[in-house]
């Protein structure tokens, strides 16, 4: 059984420069639709509206951090089944393990290569079990 292709990605990131790089990377190289959210407080509302296949969260966000947002998503019926990939500058084994324990689908460490990012996300997507790719 082949997995459905990864087309829609929500990206929560406060750094505008990185937002633009990721937008170019996913749209131009990855041919995906991307919805970028700067304010994590708005994130869940925007996800419900955008209906992404996958959510990419930055670990460090203003106000509430990535893991906190992730827990809030899990508390909401509309977002609890969305696969989440963390982008983090912290690469220690303990922190990666912490993320897996939270239920993250995968992690990408900073700095990432925008040329490779779409492929990395697709690899994570393809490796997910079928039930984890459910739409909200």
């Amino acid at each position: 059984m082949t997995a459905p292709p990864l087309n829609r990605v929500s990206y929560i990131e406060d750094d505008e420069d990185i937002q633009r790089i990721v937008r170019l990377s996913l749209e131009r190289i990855g041919k995906m639709s991307i919805d970028i959210v700067s304010d994590p407080e708005e994130a869940i509302g925007r996800m419900i509206a955008f209906k992404p296949d996958l959510v990419v969260l930055d670990w460090m966000l203003p106000g509430i951090d990535g893991p906190t947002l992730f827990r809030r998503m899990q508390a909401r019926a509309e977002t609890c089944r969305l696969p989440v990939v963390f982008i983090t500058a912290k690469a220690s084994a303990r922190e990666l393990e912490e993320l897996r324990a939270l239920g993250a689908a995968g992690t990408i460490s900073k700095p990432f290569s925008p040329n490779d990012l779409p492929a990395q996300l697709r690899a994570i997507w393809d490796a997910l079990p079928a039930h984890a790719r459910g739409q909200p």
Partner: peptide
Amino acid sequence: STLSHELRTPLTAVIGALQLVNSGAL
């Protein structure tokens, strides 16, 4: 820890931007 994050974030942007340019995708 701050150095790690604060330096990597801008570098992510710089390297990412340059990689996109150099890839010819733009």
